[in-house]
Design a protein around this nucleic acid. Sequence first.
RNA 1: GUCCCAGUAGCUCAGUUGGAUAGAGCAACAGCCUUCUAAGCUGUGGGUCGCAGGUUCGAAUCCUGCCUGGGACACCA
Length: 555
Amino acid sequence: MNILKQTQEKLKEEIGRAVISANLASEEQIPTIILELPKDKAHGDYATNIAMKLAKIAKKPPRKIAEEIIEQFDQTKASITKLEIAGPGFINFFMDNNYLTDLIPTILDQAANYGSSTAGNGQKIQVEFVSANPTGDLHLGHARGAAVGDSLCNVLNFAGYDVSREYYINDAGNQIVNLANSVEARYMQALGKEWEMPEDGYHGKDIINLGQKLVDEYQDQWANKTQAERLAFFREYGLKYELKKLEDDLKQFRVPFDHWFSETSLYDGQKIEPALETIKEKGYIYQQDGATWFRSTDFGDDKDRVLIKQDGTYTYLTPDIAYHKNKLDRGFETLINIWGADHHGYIPRVNAAIQALGYDADTLEVEIIQMVNLLQNGEKVKMSKRTGKAVTLKELMEEVGVDAMRYFFNMRSSDSHLDFDMDLARSQSNENPVFYVQYAHARISTMLKQAEQKGLADGNYDGSLLTAEKEEELLKKLGEFAQVVEEAADKRKPHRITQYIFDLASSLHSFYNAEKVLDDNELERTKARIALMKAVKITLANGLALIGVSAPESM
RNA sequence: GUCCCAGUAGCUCAGUUGGAUAGAGCAACAGCCUUCUAAGCUGUGGGUCGCAGGUUCGAAUCCUGCCUGGGACACCA
């Protein structure tokens, strides 16, 4: 627990004690005490609405209650310099500033770990994300999912959860047959033959390239084999080729995975039948019209779902159930799936499966990532998966850079649609928010280098000299970081981090313009400010790392 | 037709266990570089929080209905 939290806990404790000794409520009746950070600093450093909450229990007007609390309140116990009643019955607390400057040594000491916590109690969470079919390049929508998923994992990990990142490879179904057929067509076309693309084939440029690559390597030798031989080879070759590409692209996008889970391994390892058996034993399976059904309506799904089709093959859901059972068998307490908005209709049936397997409904959480519109020259770029006309992750990384993409995709709540403005992301100007934050970090780096040269960075300083308004503002912001991380983890909202570092950068720039850090005439104050700058630098770097954006030393 | 997400400043969006005068960036306007990086700062203007009810000391936030935009509703994956 950091020093700021200790201060808050002490304050809450003292409020609770005062409420009881004022006879306003009994131990059991007393509501949770909430401390808020007032937006307006005229309202103090902390405020509580406890008097309003107690109005019903104590049957007195809130302001009267507040007065009685204050009478019983021991200021010295909670390092309060002043407290007052305001508005409808808020109690505002004004703190002794020492509680803030004590933060600096904590931050310098914890360094890259500052902001981390054990809030997650080591809970085993698995996050499955991207999981795009290995049948084409990753595009814009996948990129958002990748950025959000990876950042969420970073945040969870930092907040003390035990996170595993997984990619589910759909390498078993019809889409792989389509892949083989598409590769065949492109191969034949590359040989100059007339050959129609299959109706639901993959029209991406990468398959065209693959066709050419095959011709370069094998000339026409596969054209002369039987189609069965040819397709079997293209299937394996295409899969390997596509997977390699996925891995490379994601690596470049700074998105590592702990496991790449192959759907085929479920078949090979005979995991599917036992999963079906489990559900069957519990009575959620029935036969009808020559098919095998899962009674998912028992768990709130719209309709029952087919697991084994009339032709004897599985639907997509069936291996997916086995996959989720496998995840749970591996001991994960919580599963988080990150899906595109176009899959949200699929949630109830998977959730039903989780319950049919004997787990609570909330074992599985699905985070839906809303769609991305790409804007260029102020206009929407039209995309179509079917014709392969889509902007790929790779192209975008080359065009606008990884930093800007990672930042932009984590700038907004993922359940709201995102306009990705390419011109803005690419621009080397102050309109581009990613630079704003990076610039703050680089600015500090420059100052620290100069301090080093002047021999001022010996580590000794007096924190009590940091009394300027902008310094207090910075310190308060720094102190919020761990709680922001915890909240981002708990609510699965990594964009909170982005908002936070933007605010922190803003406070830094504002401070920078108001006060001079390196001042030869004020050596003691200079040293204190250098320590503060180091703390800000650490916090910015940690925040940037969480969203996968680099923290440059200079710009 | 049913379900999910969204609707907040001119534009793009923050804002949850319900709190004080609803915030930021961009755009507009007015200022700040002989001084640690102006990719920066300071200030001004800008709002029926989609609409209508309800719940209560108090609602952008919770409930109900409606409107608009997007998405999903397979023995496809």
